[in-house]
Simulated scan of single mutants.
Amino acid sequence: MNEYRILAINPGSTSTKFAVYYNDECKLNKTLRHSIDELSSYKSILKQFDYRKGMIIDALVEEGFEVDSLKYIIGRGGLTYPLESGVYLVNNEMLKHASDGVYGQHASNLGPLIADFIANQIPGAKAFIADPVVTDELDEIARITGHPQFEKRSIFHALNQKATARQHAKKLGVPYESLNLIVAHLGGGISVGAHKKGRVVDVNNGLDGDGPFSPERSGGLPTGQIIDWCFESGRSKADIRRMVVGEGGYVAYLKTNDARDVEEMARQGNEKARLIQDAMAYQVAKSIGEMAVVLEGQVDGVLLTGGVAYSEYITSFIKTKVEFLAPVYVYPGEDELEALAKNALRVARQETQAKTYQPKIR
């Protein structure tokens, strides 16, 4: 059997995670932490490129890996223009759009840039991304917001949602494309997607904090109140964005973004913590109900995933609300590096074909 050697890279806000896989076997999984002081010396995320890719290469050498033996380099996809789901070869157009941050600046934009750089140093190596956060398979009707000035954007935890759905289908012994699933990613941000025969036809914008509130995001706030607040508070655009993304949800109510802290507070009798925890789970359950309507009630399963899905209290709360719709399955945690590696392996084994990045700019 051929041995395919894969390097998976996931740049995050304060860390760079990477892993080495030989076929399905993880040989190295490492998280490089970056302090706020270290990152503050760079004027933009793009300026962090040399720093982060250098740390990866140095760590690989230090761990005794022959960098030249890694032929499939796959990075987390960033905020380029929207794409359908799949594995993509990194090309110059993708690199430009990731560098420009055409849909925003985020550390994930460095994913294709670092993957491409490392692949270019290795004879015969190729660089890829898979299921980026801008994966867009929305039905046209789902894009309509209520005013032509605004259009719904598909930005969500596509990599983990797709990986979890495929894992579930494999467990059942059926193709992912044969199922109708509702997948709820419960993490620092929350996204709930309707997976219809392999396509996510509707999902809340998890980046901007639409939908349920989460440990860090405010969710769908009352429109009239937020308009008044924006004009009357004297806050800057950056302040308001932080209120919605980063300083909303648990952070705003309870001064922590750690769901484990909130659960412990509730367990010890903090009634406010219990109410806020219940309210978040309640909103997730409501979103799952909305997606059941999208799928016209034909739901084969509801999948709960992400770090917050480790909480038996929260998953039980949601299950009680929605199990009348379909069986509920819990896949706690998220392993985006494993998901990336598996996507690269699918290409290596010719189980799928890498696509060309040619976005349709809306």
Rank of each mutant, 00 (worst) to 15 (best):
N2F: 02
R5F: 03
I9M: 03
S15F: 11
A19S: 15
E25R: 15
R33Q: 13
H34M: 08
D37H: 04
Y51T: 02
K53N: 07
S69W: 01
I73F: 03
I74C: 03
I74M: 04
R76A: 05
L79G: 08
L83R: 03
G86Y: 03
Y88P: 10
E93I: 12
K96G: 00
G101L: 11
N109S: 13
D131A: 01
E140R: 05
P148G: 01
K152C: 02
K152E: 13
N160L: 10
A165H: 05
R166S: 11
H168S: 02
A169S: 14
V174F: 12
V174T: 13
Y176F: 15
L181Y: 11
G187W: 04
V192S: 09
G193I: 05
A194V: 11
A194S: 14
G198E: 03
D202T: 06
V203L: 06
L207C: 08
K272W: 00
A281G: 15
S287W: 02
A292I: 06
E296P: 00
V308M: 14
A309I: 12
E312V: 08
I318M: 11
A326N: 08
V328P: 12
N343Y: 02
N343M: 11
A344N: 11
A344I: 06
Y357S: 11
K360M: 06
K360L: 10
